[in-house]
Amino acid sequence: MTQVSGAIDRAAVSVRAVSKAYGGVPAVDGISFELAPGSFVALVGPSGCGKSSLLEIMAGIRGADRGEVVVGGRRVDRPIRSVGVMFQEDTTLPWRTVYRNVAFPLEASRRDRHEIAAKVEAALRMVDLWEHRTMHPAALSGGMRQRVSLARVLATDPSVLLLDEPFGALDEQLRLRLGLEVQRICREQGRTAVLITHSIQEAVLLADRVLVLSGRPATVVQDLEVPLPDHRSADQLGDPRVAQVVAKVWASLAY
């Protein structure tokens, strides 16, 4: 291994000059950034700028026109197991119980039954839904359903989580609470996370780094560290350091 690739391997995720156009109109334009292992990074940017496109490229479910994404030293050209994705909309399967929803990706990759049982239980306990495992999604609230989706991602034990406005459809209180929960889980288990959000406050409160994207085509216009301790809570909303970073994000969005 060369020196260079050794350095790159230290990053959990490297996005290198990724571009993507739809019908000749660019949506993502030469984006590059690296994520340190265990970091929690928020992506904010105007609606329709190409955030979801970028995330889907990182997840390997959409191809880039140019550039590449490297996860754990491997170039992403198809979905890889160490990356978990959570979508904005409710993607629980209505005909499966909570338990079987979480087991879905494990069954799909033909894991051993005992392994599936252990992982599903662990994931459901993490999101506090173990008691509800026999219920169907229709009987759950919107927030619980998103927690099922989160458990489904966690059950595959990904080292990188890609979260596309995961709680965007929920009310603000719930969104913040669930966000803090995800942040805590990622922190405790040393998982790397990318969170797309349209709430700047949420981004600052949860992430240790905020990447601000420009309008379409998306480029990185600002890369901000959040100087808060690892343990986050809603109390920090009043913290002057949060207000400072929020103001900076606003300033760069106007730019």
Binding site: P79, F87, A108
Partner: peptide, 27 residues
């Protein structure tokens, strides 16, 4: 439409996709 996304993320294809997503989805 999200069934399609799930199928791509978890690489559920062919017969497995039919039996795990398509047929139960339209049960």
């Amino acid at each position: 439409a999200y069934l399609d996304k799930l199928a791509r993320v978890y690489e559920v294809r062919g017969l497995s996709r039919l039996t795990r997503l398509t047929l139960p989805g339209m049960a």
